[in-house]
Write a protein that binds this DNA or RNA. Sequence first.
DNA 1: TTGTAAGCGTTATCAG
DNA 2: CTGATAACGCTTACAA
Lengths: 354, 354
Amino acid sequence: MNAEKSDETTAKPTINDIARLSGVSKKTVSRVINRSPLLNEATRRRVDAVIQETGYIPNPQARALALRRNFLIALVHDNPNAQMVLGMQQGILAMLADTEYELIVRPVNRGAPSMVADVRAFLERQRPHGLVLLPPISEKDELAALCASFGCRYVRMGSAELDGPAHLVASNDRDAVREAVAYLIGQGHRRIGFVQGPSGFRSAHERRLGYEEALAAAGLDPVAAWTREGDYRFDSGLAAGRAILSQDGRPTAIFASNDEMAAGVLHAARERGLDVPADLSILGFDDTAIAAHLWPPLTTIRWPIAAMARAAAVKLLSSPDRVDADTAGDPASAGDISFFPSTLVHRASIAPPR
Amino acid sequence: MNAEKSDETTAKPTINDIARLSGVSKKTVSRVINRSPLLNEATRRRVDAVIQETGYIPNPQARALALRRNFLIALVHDNPNAQMVLGMQQGILAMLADTEYELIVRPVNRGAPSMVADVRAFLERQRPHGLVLLPPISEKDELAALCASFGCRYVRMGSAELDGPAHLVASNDRDAVREAVAYLIGQGHRRIGFVQGPSGFRSAHERRLGYEEALAAAGLDPVAAWTREGDYRFDSGLAAGRAILSQDGRPTAIFASNDEMAAGVLHAARERGLDVPADLSILGFDDTAIAAHLWPPLTTIRWPIAAMARAAAVKLLSSPDRVDADTAGDPASAGDISFFPSTLVHRASIAPPR
DNA sequence: TTGTAAGCGTTATCAG
DNA sequence: CTGATAACGCTTACAA
């Protein structure tokens, strides 16, 4: 299966072995490894051949020590949503594949008073190459400042413009919600309820603004009785749904600020024997796995997570590299790939009002 | 906020600084760091004080290089279930907290012919301390052998006895399913359908055996017409549900081998206008997030993921350490915490047949 | 109980 | 273009 006669139980070859075997110095081998431009082509080939034969792989720890920088990208998050975290991981890893970087995962506990200190300790210890911060903790400017103070690269994922383009990958939640609610209005809805996300969350705020802007554009006013605040969790959506739907003159549609709460609203509608979407249209946000599996399947707004994650990884990697006389720097300047539009995923939970 | 006058922008102190400042040798500082037992208590305190003051943190890269082992635990998986992967991550990380270990994530592509080679390349490059293998790839003996050949510790998570206790953390799916189906029978069901997982998966096999054993214990026979094979995904559950429910003399209950497929069956039941659970009881497996959010909430079987993940981490850490005259070895022998019983989560999708 | 010297595997410096 | 030589920060002999 493996043509090479590599013997895993034996010590791995080191740069010294390669140097000896190919009759050059360590430094030259190092140059080959690092694709130094000023290197005789013949020498390079000779060394490369030996590397191939022996199956030599540079030791990442030693490189990290000598370079005084490591090759770790950390995903720092406070698990808002399993699907999203995993999607981010996969997107980032897709860009990290075939590089020497590894992804390390770092859940933190927002709420815990030690949260910032925990991240600080992590930075001190590992000195990672870069951080990807997921919402909602990505909204904390304190964390960004912390990274900066350590000279650690970082990218924040968010729902709005949180930072400069070098440190931001975002979707414009406000726009997406405005358009989705406008669609609801276009379907004929005039009485549109709203389940807000928890205050203090930028995403919750942006989504509210989008909702209000859409109403305003149609000459409608938000109705307090049709509005409730939730905490992005199912139960809060259920409670909000019950509260909103128990009133006379209930809305014909409800926008819930995320899918979990939308599922709760759906639950509440069922409890009252309402038919969704005939009696009540429901719009969610996130397009988590649950959305497609609900009955009826939920119309919702989707972040382009994979693309955003890849962009984040690119920004982290294509950063001011060492400007070595000896080394080729990759000039991949990241353009301005900071904003990614979210899209409305049409399923079956929205219909014109009866 | 931070009383210490540590200056992050300045170079971190090294072991040399500590040695100089506390008037001892590097080696002595090293001994303090590594809690060597043979060390004068006074010396230790003195050095510790300096470490505190300076905020010194040993460089993990340098340690890894000198020790010829790193402090990375890798979670290798190709798991369709986001909730489970994240639960595993959190469980493992809970044990890794306050250690020098970091968790790195390594999704692989089962199905890809290069899968084993990919893992091999990863092992060669990073030489991680240990691997946690999640199902379904944990079932591949080839991967376990690969780890062994690299002298890399590993733990396989599984649905049955896949390996020796040192390398296994499992739940007994067969037992759990047998009991759950027995419960269904206890509720009065005699016509119980089955949506099987994809062949080739150990979990699918074990769950089938549990189902059959429960039937056998009640003197019932599996009915081919009420059995379909799915691929653990929603659509396959939907298809299976449609096929099973479209027949005359349909079952009064269906056990689907995971929640996603159960959601599909539920979908199919709705399409036919069946009332769940009155007309049809449904039992799932996994207790993913979706289970609680479906309508009706799904009765399902839950792996104790967090506990299992912690156990896996413990097995990886409490492994044959260097037996140094100078160093205290932690004798935490892992007992035999290999098996974790799954539990039936009662919700609303099961009722006695009409 | 502590220190000295010699690595671990790589890269940077600076001469040839 | 290439190669000695000295880092990088820590650990393990082996002494003292």
